[in-house]
């Protein structure tokens, strides 16, 4: 069984970017979050396709040359999950 992340369907996510920071607003939950460039890159990845946590880490390393620590990625994903931006799916 593996665990993936995917964008929650049916609700728009608004963005407003100032330099390296972006505020995002989820029109379903009404939650607002502030993301840095990496946060936005991760959001873009998950919005484009369903990915496992490790796949996200690899993408970021390949494209942005940043090695994400285990904790920081998990924390960000959990936060995006809590406000309903992304969701966890399990496939057998």
């Amino acid at each position: 069984m593996s665990e993936y992340w995917e964008a929650v369907a049916g609700f728009e996510v608004l963005r407003k970017t100032w330099g390296s920071e972006s505020a995002i607003y989820h029109t379903g939950s009404g939650d607002t979050q502030l993301l840095d460039e990496l946060g936005i890159a991760i959001l873009n990845l998950v919005q484009a396709q369903r990915l496992e946590t490790e796949e996200i880490r690899e993408h970021i390393l390949r494209k942005h040359k940043v090695e994400l620590e285990g904790d920081s990625l998990a924390r960000l994903l959990a936060e995006l999950n809590r406000s309903g931006v992304i969701t966890r799916v399990q496939t057998p």
Binding site: V8, G10, F11, T27, G28, S29, G30, G84, T87
Partner: peptide, 16 residues
């Protein structure tokens, strides 16, 4: 409108 948003989201969360 806010109540509507809250209800629609809560229904989504219950489905989830």
């Amino acid at each position: 409108d806010k109540h509507r948003q809250t209800v629609i989201w809560e229904i989504d969360r219950i489905s989830e």
